[in-house]
């Protein structure tokens, strides 16, 4: 744990040294929310009936969709991106000379991106509340549990991307495709119930569909965790099954590159 925390701290110190960039990344995110607020208010009369059961305010609906997508994206891309950077600079080779295990290195290298995304999401929620987003504050803790499950269900895709990066030294297309599909069919901008035909079936394969449905029901509508148990079970199942697959493939890829020599800076 201390080893991963040390790498998280190093990443934070590095990011902190680029002060303007750090500040802009928060300001830009919050700034993005303002046009969204006006668009959401304009569409409110039309969307109100469509989003029943997931809160009735379209702006809050969009806000949770956006933070969930941000978190899912970070969970999928943090590890392969960090690994790619560490491989390219030779940092990974230097880190591998320490007593840290590969799993600790991967967690430590990618933790900053996830933590920073979380911080930005908190800023986004705070800005949303200032603009009038109505959230059920009594349901914050169950909502956080759902957010954790959403991240856990997407981390395995990050592991698959890591395995791909190790084996082929290239960014996996998995996370990009899933981000794209999630943003259109995962219920980020509109409820999955309005997606027609076969595309509706595709949306049921996407972890974000379940996560967003549960998160909105709990945090916007004040529903209990029991009422979204089916969605939570699905998320947990995806996290477990895909997680096991991701760990297995990453281990295989790691063993492969230790044989062919792809772990070192080239």
């Amino acid at each position: 744990m201390r080893r991963a925390a040390a790498l998280l701290y190093a990443s934070w110190l590095t990011a902190r040294s680029y002060r303007v960039q750090l500040l802009l990344s928060v300001v830009a995110l919050v700034g993005m929310l303002i046009p969204l607020y006006f668009v959401a208010n304009a569409l409110q009369p039309m969307m109100a009936s469509r989003i029943q059961g997931e809160g009735e305010q379209y702006f809050a609906f969009l806000l949770l969709g956006m933070i969930s997508l941000q978190l899912a994206q970070a969970a999928m891309s943090a590890m392969p991106t960090a690994l790619s950077g560490a491989l390219g600079t030779g940092v990974l080779e230097a880190l591998m000379a320490t007593r840290a295990r590969m799993s600790e290195l991967l967690v430590g290298l990618s933790a900053y991106e996830l933590c920073w995304t979380l911080v930005r999401c908190v800023a986004l929620v705070a800005a949303g509340v200032v603009l009038g987003a109505q959230l059920e504050w009594s349901r914050v803790l169950p909502a956080l549990l759902i957010v954790v499950l959403v991240v856990a269900a997407h981390v395995p895709f990050g592991l698959l991307g890591t395995a791909f990066m190790l084996a082929f030294r290239a960014q996996s297309p998995i996370s990009r495709v899933l981000t794209l599909v999630s943003s259109f069919l995962g219920g980020v901008y509109y409820p999955t119930s309005v997606i027609p035909g076969w595309m509706g079936h595709v949306s049921q394969l996407i972890p974000l569909s379940y996560g967003l449905k549960a998160l909105r029901a709990v945090w916007l509508d004040g529903a209990s965790l029991g009422s979204v148990a089916a969605e939570l079970r699905m998320l947990a199942l995806m996290a477990l099954v895909l997680g096991a697959l991701g760990v297995a493939l990453t281990s295989l890829a790691l063993r492969h590159v230790r044989r062919v020599g792809g772990l070192t800076h080239l």
Partner: peptide, 13 residues
């Protein structure tokens, strides 16, 4: 191993 790849250091630290 003492790496000689100086990019392996954290340059902003």
């Amino acid at each position: 191993p003492a790496s000689i790849e100086d990019r392996s250091l954290f340059w902003r630290l």
